[in-house]
Amino acid sequence: MQTLDSTVKWFNKTEGRDKICKVLQYGSRFLMWHLKTNSGNEQLSNQFKNLFQSTRDARKLFRLAKSLNELQTIIDKLGQNCKNPQEQLAKALNILTRVWFLLYWFFDNLSVLSSIKFTTSDPKPLQKKAMTFWFIAIITNLVDTIRSLVVNFQYIQQNKSNQSAQQQVQNKQNQNKALYLNLIKIFGDLMPAGQGSEFFPKVLKINLNDGVIGLGGLISGAIAAYQAY
């Protein structure tokens, strides 16, 4: 019963529903590509294409006004006191990440409102701006995650023989496990963000197909769903 209660509460969370939709969205995108490219099953591929597009649009509607969440997080972070330069750097990177995500949600919201004809703007340039800020947010988050791993490793190495610090060492090791998952999730999200922002095709001259993008988003969504649970 306890597992059932936890599962129901998880599904009732907005984040939980969004991550399940993300798994469906990118899983469908991967299957759409796989069935069309490797199996030649055009009809089933089109069915997964419809599921991919529907879940993509549903997630966009879920995220309306989500920039307000980021604004509240930024305000809370600005009010935090930092004891040393290391904490100041962590705070700055965290705030920067949230600022980029705020702009991502903002333009993403404008894009979906344009797509459903609520506004008269062209959704394509708005979506490109959204994906660009998402890509920047991911890169900033990547830098912050690597910084956290380095700091934790330094602490573990310096205190592995210190008996009085063993509990803190264990805490750092547990934090690293979560950070490793975050790294995998970040690299997964880089696939759709890098393609959507046109960084990969225009800067790196790499044009990712739907299979790679779908697989990256699927892995990221699965990890995010696990973490939300």
Rank of each mutant, 00 (worst) to 15 (best):
G217V: 01
L78R: 14
D57E: 09
A65G: 06
E87W: 00
F11I: 13
S148C: 06
A65W: 09
N41H: 12
Y104E: 07
A178G: 10
T37L: 13
L218P: 02
Q167G: 15
L149D: 02
L96I: 04
L61V: 03
L103W: 02
V23D: 05
I20A: 12
M32K: 12
Y155A: 05
K60W: 01
D76K: 14
Q227G: 09
E198A: 10
I75G: 13
F48I: 00
L179T: 04
Q163S: 08
I156G: 03
Q25A: 07
F153W: 06
T73F: 03
P123D: 00
T55Q: 09
T97N: 11
L208R: 06
C21M: 14
I116R: 01
S161D: 15
I156L: 05
L24Y: 09
V23T: 13
L96K: 07
L113Y: 01
I184H: 06
Q158P: 04
A65M: 10
I116E: 01
D18N: 12
Y229K: 14
L126V: 01
I206H: 10
N207D: 15
Y229M: 06
F52H: 13
V150M: 03
T97C: 08
L61E: 02
D18H: 05
K91Q: 13
K83R: 08
Q154I: 07
S161L: 11
Q43D: 12
A137V: 02
K124I: 00
L44R: 04
Y229I: 10
S67R: 04
L110E: 05
A224I: 06
K13L: 14
F48H: 03
V143T: 09
S6G: 03
I20R: 12
F133Y: 00
Y229N: 14
